[in-house]
């Protein structure tokens, strides 16, 4: 892999009407290349009434996600998200492949690089390295098999130099640090 390629991590979270998002693009060593975040969005009472149940989807999928994707300057080869609801819009608007990655407690697969389908559609287990349990991958509906294979290969390559899910923790730490800095 060229050393200027990267993996993008995107997270949008919040509750009680306070939602914010952040993305981090890292190289295969986990070194940050681009980091963008939004302030908290707090819809007014009137907006909550008018948007109703669609408010959460609108804020997360259209407003915050699109704003983050528009702002990013270093395009990754693969987007990794932690929210199922972001998969499809990320695949449609992110211009590159998107996958939801989470740790699993499954027994290790035979070899590093092994990929195993599950009974759930678009859900796979990937043995990304030899020192952890397989990763659970979820792809958006309609993802082609060659895209799945390419994504898995990229994750295996990155797992040789970094921990795949670790950047999510760093994003949270950075956001907490920024919030405390703002408050202070």
């Amino acid at each position: 892999m060229a050393n200027n390629s990267g993996i993008g991590y995107i997270t949008i979270d919040g509750n009680e009407g306070l939602i914010r998002g952040a993305l981090l693009v890292v190289d295969v060593r986990g070194i940050p290349l681009d980091f963008r975040y939004t302030d908290y969005i707090k819809p007014t009472k009137l907006e909550r009434i008018l948007y109703g149940n669609a408010l959460d989807t609108y804020l997360k999928q259209e407003l915050i996600l699109q704003s983050l994707l528009d702002a990013v300057e270093v395009e990754p080869q693969l987007w990794i998200c932690s929210d199922m609801n972001l998969l499809t819009p990320l695949k449609e608007n992110g211009h590159v492949k998107a996958v939801l990655v989470s740790a699993s407690t499954r027994q290790p697969l035979e070899n590093v690089g092994s990929i195993e389908s599950t009974s759930e559609p678009n859900v796979f287990y990937l043995q990304a390295d030899g020192v952890s349990a397989p990763l659970r991958l979820v792809f958006a509906a309609g993802t082609r098999s060659d895209e799945i294979q390419n994504s898995a290969a990229l994750l295996v390559e990155a797992a040789g130099t970094m921990e795949i899910t670790e950047p999510f923790t760093r994003i949270q730490k950075a956001l907490a640090s920024l919030a405390s800095g703002t408050e202070g």
Binding site: D34, F35, R36, Y51, L59, L63, E163, K173
Partner: peptide, 21 residues
């Protein structure tokens, strides 16, 4: 609801260490 303007804080996150289990 107005679109948000993301902020760039690469300097901030570079100072945060990676963590290995």
């Amino acid at each position: 609801i107005k679109p948000v303007r993301p902020k760039n804080s690469l300097r901030q996150i570079i100072t945060i260490p990676q963590e290995r289990m």
